[in-house]
Design a protein around this nucleic acid. Structure first.
Lengths: 249, 249
DNA sequence: AGCAAATTTGCATTAAATTGCAACAAGTGT
DNA sequence: ACACTTGTTGCAATTTAATGCAAATTTGCT
């Protein structure tokens, strides 16, 4: 049986049952548990269900309690996504820019979220389309195939037309001396515009991008209000970023 | 059997079977599996189906594929696309708005096209991404899930910032007395803006939409330069639209 | 802490996709 | 009618992906 058929089957099964287990599915679809595990990981990464120990369950309507989330979600992107989720309140307007971390957040939003999301990221548009109460506003401009984002003066200009409660800034190079930097000028300038148009800027960075530098300076630490990483709060790698005037998550 | 015939056959088969394999098709159409593979790749690139290992399935059946794209190769869409294509020259800047007919045109563009395309249609963005020498400019604004387009004052305003050689206006209600009309005000207003910003406006309409009316008036016949339909040039249905100051294709 | 179950990782096997290539057909322009 | 480009098709060699198995690691529970 082909992978896609199996994925279909798993999702269909989840419509009726609260949860499915690996061994049940393995038997039903007559493949090994490993294969099912990989299938469920795929679905999890696409935000179509939540991977839990021993199987999978439906993505919940309501946000998971913190405890549930910590037990159910794992992996770097997931950690960042769940931390970021705590910052979101229904009714808010949010900027989301490019990068896979942003997509992870979008894919983990509760299905009953009520938000207004402004984005230059086509992937985010696709992901959020599934959530009915999210109003999506697209920023226009020159489309870049590689990142699936629009950029350029047009996007920057448009970003300036809105005021958002929150800005989730996609994974970025961050350095204790040089602040936040981007690898493309157009990308960096758009980030600057979004910072300017938001009440609160949340920088997202995974462990590897900490202490790294790109060539275009976006802002120094005064520009951001929260830094979210996948590291534990006590991690020594974060020492350079403590007491810098922003919240560390 | 010609490629076009095969493509149609594959799509038709998928309507009933939800999944097809290479070897099945290879036998049925008596060509090699490689050829079928290439056919399916073509269809996949145009978003008409979802390529999976060993065959293809409907996009709507594949949980991992982005939103469904209604088959736009059927009906007279293909004929319209071919006619419209004659109007395009390399190096031009083109507006393309919403609708499946527009997608059909985008899907038929040769891979070596050199164009600048300005669009508010997400499906078009996806389809054109496969052509490297097409520069894509996205119009921002409020995103509508049903049509996969952005609209609103923002989109209208942005459209006014460009000047295009051509504007392909998606399938529209057209009537000899009431001119061109649209079913949504935002859609209609954007059409007006695009007409204003283009040197040449090409209206696309299939036979059924001829002599039909919607509630929002976009323009009368003075606003358009070419009307493309799927009907033969001698068709009596077209009599009302001859000698109206635009070219009839 | 310690045990059992679950999960990750590395690896071998097989199936499938891609690539490069040559033969061939279909147009194109002279 | 001719050579010429262009695109299509099938085949073989190579690369890549999916799958199941086993060892090593992690996790959950008592």
């Amino acid at each position: 049986m082909v992978k896609e058929k199996r994925l279909q089957h798993i999702l269909k099964l989840l419509q009726n049952r609260e949860m499915v287990t690996y061994d049940l599915l393995a038997g039903e679809l007559s493949v090994s548990e490993d294969t099912i595990r990989r299938d469920i990981e795929t679905l999890h990464n696409n935000g179509l269900l939540s991977k839990i120990r021993g199987g999978a369950m439906l993505r919940s309507e309501n946000p998971l309690s913190f405890q549930e989330r910590t037990t159910y979600l794992q992996g770097g992107k997931d950690v960042i996504a769940l931390k970021a989720q705590q910052l979101i309140k229904n009714g808010q307007t949010i900027f989301m820019d490019g990068g896979s971390t942003i997509c992870a957040i979008a894919g983990r939003l509760p299905l009953n979220s009520v938000l207004k999301v402004i984005t230059n990221n086509q992937a985010v548009v696709q992901i959020l389309s599934r959530i009915p109460e999210i109003e999506i506003i697209i920023l226009g401009g020159n489309y870049d195939r590689d990142t699936a984002t629009s950029s350029g003066t047009q996007a920057i200009y448009e970003a300036g037309k809105y005021v958002a409660d929150l800005y989730f800034m996609g994974t970025c190079a961050i350095h204790h001396a040089f602040g936040i930097t981007a690898s493309l000028q157009t990308e960096g300038e758009l980030k600057q515009a979004m910072i300017k148009s938001s009440l609160k800027t949340v920088a997202l960075s995974n462990g590897e991008k900490l202490d790294s530098i790109e060539y275009f300076k976006v802002c120094d630490f005064s520009g951001i209000d929260v830094l979210v990483t996948d590291l534990a709060s006590g991690d020594p790698k974060l020492n350079n970023y403590r007491a810098q005037g922003f919240q560390l998550l």
